[in-house]
Design a binder for these strands. Sequence first.
DNA 1: AGCCGGGAAAACATCGGATGTCTGAACCCA
DNA 2: TGGGTTCAGACATCCGATGTTTTCCCGGCT
Lengths: 240, 240
Amino acid sequence: MSRTDEVVNGIKRMILEGTFKPGDRLPIEKDLAESLGVSRGSLREGMSALSILGIVNIRQGDGTYITNLDAPQLLAPMGFVVDFQGQGDPRHIHTVRRLLECEAARLAATRITDEALAQAGELLDEAARIAGRSPQDHERIMEIDIAFHRIIAVHADNPVLVGLIEAFAGRTLRGRLWRSLHEEGADRRTHDEHVAILKALVARDPERARTRMANHLIGVEESLQELPDDADTNGEAAGP
Amino acid sequence: MSRTDEVVNGIKRMILEGTFKPGDRLPIEKDLAESLGVSRGSLREGMSALSILGIVNIRQGDGTYITNLDAPQLLAPMGFVVDFQGQGDPRHIHTVRRLLECEAARLAATRITDEALAQAGELLDEAARIAGRSPQDHERIMEIDIAFHRIIAVHADNPVLVGLIEAFAGRTLRGRLWRSLHEEGADRRTHDEHVAILKALVARDPERARTRMANHLIGVEESLQELPDDADTNGEAAGP
DNA sequence: AGCCGGGAAAACATCGGATGTCTGAACCCA
DNA sequence: TGGGTTCAGACATCCGATGTTTTCCCGGCT
């Protein structure tokens, strides 16, 4: 096992044993390196990995802190999987996404709060208003789409499910889908489907909510299959 | 954005653009650091993170290679989530696991090969033989359990689904479940449920397979709920 | 001709130190 | 007492040196 793995597993073990708790500030690099028996450079490699995994939060000039360790945060790096795996064949990913979001809709139907339902309704109203105007703000519509699905996911009351949905239905996948959808004027159909989902949620009907969500996502999947292969190079170009 | 993130995103971008393909050997650290405009140390921090994420494979004395980038490999580090999140409350994780495995069983019913069915049957036979002996090899039984579920997952023909199931139903979670299960002599019930699942798969009946799997996992969940909170007695609160 | 072992070279692994930069808080002055 | 300033702490980055592992070539042996 490399020194880096030693560091990662060491910190992981200490967290599991309760030595460090979420929100805690870790000892300074020098002391931590000493207590793990590695040099500061090796320690930093390990800490960097932990930081990318979302387990610790490193703040320059301040210190290193354990994150809250909640599922969405820890599942965030899974976006890599979506980017890489979805390259040639997004169908597998979307199959899983449909499975997850359908279950979320089913669970949310009995657990969602009235406030959340009102909020979701306002989002759809705003989407309807934007759709009526001539220069449609597609960026905003996409945000509303994501926010709507997020509300449902959150109110399934299962942080693990939320984390997975966030990772699988994040901006990357949506962005690729969007062009194919809005070009055909499918905004309207998408909006109608969203309304149907909301209606089922308001009725607190789990099976209806699940079915409406399934119908919605199957529609998205079919739009996806039509276009062959969209290789777009979006640069999250790093600065200087 | 820190240099480390620059490295991670830089490599990620190059992979997505096709500069590097799975299995490719990357340039040596010195050249790669130069082309990314960072020092070798910073590059190594980033590469270490990529290695832990399962995106590259670093072999000392040889070089750094892009992995095959398949879903199971990329989803492996998600075991962290199970370990941390499942600490106090494994129910959320197990709910997701049940969702995933039920879908896998449903899909596998129509896709599984005769060879795989035969293999699964042999596993269950072996489990039955072990259960009959007096000094029961629980370690081997657990391996068989994992292998049985894995066969089903793999034959759902969805690598993303396989990756998620591997992460959520791995050794860590099973290990915690095991004590509560085998102490009550529930091996027999588990085995019977496995046989029922296999029977449904042999019949190529998706809904029956799904239901049998659901029944099996609900049983596991109930065993889980019975024991209140397994506070392991580890008392090494090491305070430096 | 084919096989095998040794050694050189390549490449990563690890380390220690030096310097830059940012943050937070104590401190000083009005 | 309030506000600005300074200072110590901590991470970020880079550099150079040395150890370790693997690969691969080359010479000798069968």
